[in-house]
């Protein structure tokens, strides 16, 4: 008869892991962490924009009356407030994305690395140009 206390079974050496517990709210402790999480969360508002665009396309396919109802819904204060918040987050995505671009992809020209500022500036210039073209297509009347 073997008792567990008298003869402990052989066990492999197993060091205790050092794993400090990270708080669930780790991203609130430092501004740079919070900025990172806000940047990632901006994607929710990007998805929200797509959902509203899909609703718009559905209203378009249902005829002028459905589209007028959709426009009325877009004018309700809650939707406008939501879109305003979305717009701020999307702009945050634009800024962080453009400043990330030269780091994610190092562009070289004539053996030298193109300065970051030049790439970021080109991004903004293209952004303005594209926005103007889209706005021209969607002009009123």
């Amino acid at each position: 008869m073997k008792s567990n206390n008298a003869a402990p079974g052989y066990s492999l050496f197993h060091p205790r892991w050092y794993r400090p517990r990270v708080s669930t709210y780790w991203w609130l402790h430092q501004w740079s962490y919070l900025k990172f999480v806000l940047r990632e969360l901006s994607s929710i508002f990007v998805a929200l924009f797509v959902v509203i665009t899909l609703l718009q396309l559905r209203a378009l396919s249902h005829g002028p009356q459905a589209y007028a109802d959709f426009q009325k819904w877009m004018k309700s204060p809650a939707v406008i407030a939501l879109n305003a918040v979305s717009f701020v987050f999307v702009l945050f995505h634009v800024v962080t994305w453009f400043h990330l671009a030269p780091r994610a992809m190092a562009v070289r020209f004539a053996g030298k690395r193109v300065p970051e500022l030049l790439i970021v500036g080109a991004n903004y210039a293209a952004w303005v140009a594209i926005s103007v073209v889209v706005a021209w297509f969607l002009r009123g009347g």
């Binding site: 877009m74 406008i80 717009f87 999307v90 702009l91 995505h93 994305w97 453009f98 594209i130 889209v134």
Partner: peptide, 22 residues
């Protein structure tokens, strides 16, 4: 998707979400 969201979404969101309804 990040490129599209950066270059195209802001102008659409601004026009349809704010400028047109307001």
């Amino acid at each position: 998707g990040g490129v599209v969201a950066a270059f195209l979404v802001p102008v659409h969101l601004f026009l349809w979400g704010l400028a047109f309804p307001l």
